[in-house]
Amino acid sequence: MSPVSTLKTFEDIDCTFPKTLQEALELMADEKTRGVPLAGGTDLMVQWESGALPMPERVINVKSIPELREISEADNEVVIGGSVTHMELRQSSAVRRAVPSLAEAAATIGGFQIQIMGTLAGSVANASPAGDLAPSLLITDGTVTLAGVRGEREVKLTEFWKGYREIDRQPDELIVRFRLPRLPEGHYESWRKLGARKAQAISKVMGSSRGRMKDGVVSCFKVALGSIAPTAVRLYDVEQWIVGQPIHDETLKEAEQRVADAVKPIGDIRSTAEYRKWVSGRLVRLFLEELAARSG
């Protein structure tokens, strides 16, 4: 065997094109036909090309499985198929009503071409700490549904990212859909990505919040940040502390400090970690200010 024969190219990868979810799950069930799910390819094609990931024997095209392409609205939630693209997220009136920060986040991903190709499940499964959609998913307290031939399994999004680039998925499972509780009446969401220019990618921090003010105090607040830890994180301690507080200069300062203390940024360079703590605090302060302003 010549060593050259082990050098794979895109042309060596086999691919199946299931027409239905059932067909896809049957292919996934058997190790001999199982493949790496390929959606938009905007992560996989780059990772294979660069060598960050080895090229697999086989992929399975999940991009056009009809069941994964749907967006629907129920009473209290929006249900979004795994292969819904970032462009569809930002354009969907159902998504914009139910989880406005998710539509806003999708609109900041790459350029139009990447938004047209890339998908929600692809972003979630790629599980980069810098994935822009994770914070908006986390603040909904929603779920992701995975399917195998044995049946479906629903996992809380807050428990789905296990660690750095690690998700709670079995090898035979596909991400099918996301069920996201809609923004309740009187609540507001915010989204921001700071330091996102390529040259500053190292200091990128992004986040989302969902909250409400009633009788002059915060009655509900959920906030999640990305790019500061191996996975995007909810800041539960800060959330609990702010509930019941009015929003003014003093509480904003304290919130900022509590956020900086709560986050444990990745970043080998100390200044970067310190900077991220500071930016995280500013970001949450901004969200609270926006909440107060909108609640009038």
Binding site: V59, N61, M87, M117
Partner: peptide, 15 residues
């Protein structure tokens, strides 16, 4: 009708 990046698209995905 949609602009895509031909360097990242598996040709088989174009139906």
């Amino acid at each position: 009708g949609q602009p895509v990046l031909a360097c990242l698209m598996a040709a088989g995905q174009v139906e």
